[in-house]
């Protein structure tokens, strides 16, 4: 499901050249570039089959529900990466933002009204998103450095905050626990949140002006600015949206993990980048979409299960994720250069 890139549409018609005149390797490459979802789904199925062979009987209804439950927070965070990567950026503060909102929610719910606690939990997300956006959009700091810096500041703030709430303790709101872990008729309840959210992201990217701006900015920033787009406004809005999504992920994740800690969502950051890259979003901007990212998140979750069964340590997992990011980026670069 390649989404047509409206502003910078590349020549897509293969019909102009007769198929016979193109060598097979090139045709495969072009097919992969045009329909990245097909090889991704095939890869996912292969991974599940391998899993089934290694542990016969593991793939059942409960396993699928569990896999989806764990893939959803990753998929939302990878959504943040997808959107920022479309503009040629990256958001490494999502882990800290998710952790902050989760921790604040769990501690504020003890004395506060749920709505107030929710607003308090979302405040740091908006603030960090705003600072990221201003830093990247106005001051032109590289997004990676900027979001790394804000995540460092956020972690510091969280540590200070933690001491003020040690006495009051923490609890997981029942609603979040239901949303995070509950399963109704075989479907995880988290889908109730995820399906509308994913639909909204896909719709925004494909059909709205904001989505088009993201693709445009990532594809050719100079041209976009010359055609009258206020770059900093787009970027600021983007990073705030990204942070808000990360905050919501935090709330969902605390319902799933049920143990508030200061490094709750940190382990999700690297996989979220990897999921977006695997899903076909170019880290240089202008190419990609959210549907691929969702499949990427599922692939990574199944892969993690596989690695756990193979008793691969955490370190090896990180090495693998790093190599995946490098390999896939290099491969996509080749495909794009080939056109």
């Amino acid at each position: 499901m390649r989404r047509a890139n409206p502003i910078a549409s590349r020549p897509m018609s293969t019909s102009a050249i007769t198929p016979q005149s193109i060598p097979l390797g090139r045709r495969i490459k072009r097919f992969m570039a045009d329909r990245p979802l097909v090889p991704l789904v095939i890869l996912l199925v292969i991974l599940v089959v391998i899993l089934q062979i290694l542990r016969p009987g593991i793939v059942n209804e409960r396993w699928i529900a569990n896999t989806i439950k764990f893939a959803i927070p990753l998929a939302i965070l990878a959504g943040c990466q997808t959107m920022t990567m479309l503009t040629g950026g990256i958001d490494l503060s999502v882990g800290t933002v998710a952790t902050m909102s989760a921790f604040i929610m769990a501690t504020q719910i003890v004395n506060q009204d749920p709505a107030v606690a929710f607003l308090l939990a979302m405040t740091p997300a908006v603030l960090i998103g705003l600072v990221n956006g201003i830093g990247v959009g106005v001051f032109r700091v590289h997004p990676l450095i900027m979001t790394l810096g804000t995540s460092l500041i956020g972690t510091g703030c969280l540590q200070v905050y933690q001491r003020t709430v040690i006495a009051s303790g923490a609890k997981i709101p029942d609603f979040l626990a239901w949303l995070g872990t509950g399963v109704t008729w075989g479907f995880p309840n988290a889908l109730l949140l995820f399906v509308p959210l994913a639909a909204l992201i896909v719709f925004t990217l494909a059909r709205t002006g904001f989505g088009r701006l993201l693709y445009a900015v990532g594809d050719n920033e100079r041209a976009t600015r010359l055609s009258g787009v206020r770059y900093w406004q787009v970027i600021t809005a983007l990073y705030i949206v990204s942070s808000l999504l990360a905050g919501i992920t935090g709330l969902l994740y605390i319902g799933l993990i049920k143990a508030p800690s200061l490094s709750l969502a940190e382990p999700l950051v690297l996989p979220s980048v990897a999921a977006a890259v695997i899903g076909g979003t170019s880290i240089f901007g202008g190419r990609g979409g959210y549907t691929g990212t969702i499949v990427g998140a599922l692939i990574l979750t199944v892969l993690t299960t596989l690695l756990t069964i193979l008793q691969m340590p955490e370190g090896a997992r990180r090495i693998l994720f790093g190599l995946i990011v490098l390999f896939v980026t290099a491969a996509y670069l080749r495909i794009v250069e080939d056109r």
Binding site: L144, L270, P313, G315, R318, I319, G322, L326
Partner: peptide, 17 residues
Amino acid sequence: IVVTLAMLFVLQGAALL
């Protein structure tokens, strides 16, 4: 920036190993 980011993951993993 991408290569060294990927290497960041790899080296971190290696350190943990």
